[in-house]
Design a protein around this nucleic acid. Sequence first.
DNA 1: GAGTGGTCTAGACCACGCG
DNA 2: GCGTGGTCTAGACCACTCG
Lengths: 246, 246
Amino acid sequence: MCLISQYNQIANTLKERIKNGDYVAGQHLPSQKELADEFHTSRVTIQKALDELSNANLILRRQGSGTTVAPNSRSTLDILSSQYEGTTKLFEGRGKVTTKVLKFEIRLPSVHEQKRLSISDSTPVYDILRLRNIDNEPYELDHSIMPLSVIQNLTEKIASGSIYTFIESTLGLKIGSSIRKITADVPRKNDQDYLKCTHNEPILQVSQTVHLSDGRPFEYSQTRHRYDKGGVIVVNNTLSSNGLQI
Amino acid sequence: MCLISQYNQIANTLKERIKNGDYVAGQHLPSQKELADEFHTSRVTIQKALDELSNANLILRRQGSGTTVAPNSRSTLDILSSQYEGTTKLFEGRGKVTTKVLKFEIRLPSVHEQKRLSISDSTPVYDILRLRNIDNEPYELDHSIMPLSVIQNLTEKIASGSIYTFIESTLGLKIGSSIRKITADVPRKNDQDYLKCTHNEPILQVSQTVHLSDGRPFEYSQTRHRYDKGGVIVVNNTLSSNGLQI
DNA sequence: GAGTGGTCTAGACCACGCG
DNA sequence: GCGTGGTCTAGACCACTCG
């Protein structure tokens, strides 16, 4: 969240106004011309700011009739504020999150992992299996593969906290896009052992590849959730495309 | 997909070039100045075109060093081409899609439905239950609620085909954003009956509210998939946020 | 220092919705 | 017809990367 650019600051100001109820759902925003005057800037800059709100589904812009606040703007803001930053941060405040590291190894990657992470067969990877608990109740089983060519100096101690915080704060890397596949599955032995689920309690699996902002893939992971303690919320607009596939 | 604007056309041309391999993964694109010269336009217009490709995770732009084709651009293009357009269109080519309408009613909405669809208790809704098959194998069970105040003249015959095509082509409405929650669940009686799954075969459920481009919600639906025949792929960039929640 | 992308301006014309 | 948002221009300055 850089606050450097003018349009970014304006966008944040406008988001604040929606959050505070200065602009309520259905209400017309001031016209682009009026906003340009208010912020002492040009219309193009206002438009870039409105692009941000529009991409977040916070406003509706209609040629001829103007810009209004989206009907579901408040709930969208709630979802926005819980933006994905790794599991640890996400669940702060919902209970005490603890992580048990079940495996922490360095090895060479399989062919499948090489493909997913765009690495050669001689690039070692971390192989980390972790169990996350909320208030001492098992919640998800996470299996992550990360190449040492991108992520370095990872330790078991760090893995027992937030790897994402380590990557962003300590390594100073920026996290970019991800591709996820979400499926349901029958529980395996590991699930039954660690997530304490019975043989007919389903698992929600999220399999993902995550990239840095420079495009390098840095994590390929499979996270398995208890069906009664997990769900994924997806906001879809004309920019991001989500496909159902067999 | 309007092709009216110049930057849109340029974006499509550039996408074609990536698709055709004229620009390959990792390769530098011509600079913004060069592209502006080639397309006889200004740099700002090129930038708007690049915004589109950037949002789709097809390119990486770095200040100082230039714009390159994303490493996974080809697979991203595959996902893009299967952009969500309702189930019927999505599965064309993967087998013969047939739809059996199990229920087609008009009734008043429940309190929960009123909230989800932003309608009053006196606005009637369609209540439609459908079973989709691919090559005569049951695939998903779809329960849709749509307000008559938005969608009109829907018939059982239309419901046995593609409701989305009807909305866009016949009614001339434009589909906008959606919010989905994806969970795993144990099979209920309906699932066992229609999807032919046993009592310990999990269900993947997608619960969603879909809006028109003017912001009006027009569909609240719950779709239940056989776990071995369904999955949701989500592309996530800095614009769209997806949160995991209990 | 040269070249790249990021931001910003002031002004123009167009497409659309509404009274 | 008027006001709205959408597109586009020509040019400017800045921030960044790299040789």
